[in-house]
Amino acid sequence: MATFFGEVLSVYSRAVEEDDEELDENEEDKEIRRELEEKREVKLHWSPEISESLTSGNQLQCSDFILAVGHNAARFLSVYVLTSENWDAVGHASMWNERSRPETGLTGGESACVFYRYKNNPSVLMCQVTCYVAEDQLFQWTEKVFGCLQWRQLNVTVLSDSSVAEYKTADYLCCSSAPFLRSLHTGAFHGQPVCRSLEQPNIITGLPAAVLNHCEVHRIATVVYQCYSDVTGPDSVTMETFKPALTKLGESIQLDPSPSIDILRKFARTTNIQSNLYI
C-alpha cells in the first residue's frame, strides 16, 4: 500500500486465500493433517506436586495471575520481581510452530514459557512468555492454562510489549513520548487502571488478546497493560514503564524498587549478539 507520500508500507493482503475447490482428501492427507495438528499442540508441564493435584481434579487455587508477554515485559518481571528469590518455578509450556528453533534440549528452567509460584502466598502465579505463539495456538494456550486455574476471585494482570509503530493516533507522536502504557480491561474488572485506556482504532492482538477474550467471555477480572516502545531490543527504560502496573499488586507480591546495576545489565544486554552487521 502506498501512502500519500509515496512510501510503501507492507500490509497483509485482505484478500482471502482461495479455498474454493474443496479437494477430496484421501486418508494420507488426513493423516498428515492430524500429525501436524498433534505436533502443534500446546503442552503444559507442571511440577509433580501440581500435576498430582490437577489429575485428582483440583484446579490450582489462584488469586492473582500475572502474565508477561514479550521480552521487555518478561525481563521486567525478572529484574523487579523474580530477583527476590521468593518464587518457585512450577511448570512450563512447550509448543512447536514454524518459528521454533530446532530442538536444543531445553529443560524446564530454560523454556520460553515458564510458570512461577510465590512462596509467601501460593495463590499468586506468574508466567513469562518470550516465545512466539502461533495464531492457531493462542486460543489453545489460553484454554489449557485457564483450565488449570480456579476462576473464582481470580484477578489477571497481563503485561505486554508492542512497537510504537503499531500505535495509531491523529496527533503526530513526538519521539520523546515513547515508551508509554495503555490499558484494556474486561467488563468484570472494577479497579482503576494505572494508565489511560487504549483508544480506538487501536486494537490488541496475540496472546494478550486471547487472554482478554477468554476472560471477557468467562467474566474474569482482567487488565492488560500494553507498553508501546520505540526500541527493538529489551532496554531498561521500557522495562521501567511497567512499574506502575505492578505497584497495584504491591500487597500480594514484593517489588524490588531499585534493582542492582548488575542485574539490570544482565537482562538489558543486547539480544542480537549474533548480528555481524557492524563487525
Binding site: L184, Q200, P201, L212, E216, V217
Partner: peptide, 22 residues
Amino acid sequence: IPMTGNNPYATCNEDAEELHTP
C-alpha cells in the same frame, strides 16, 4: 485469530471503555 479493543461504536467517553471480541 484473537484480537480485541475498546468499543468500536463509541459515541461518548462514557461508553468508550467496553471490551469487544472477534
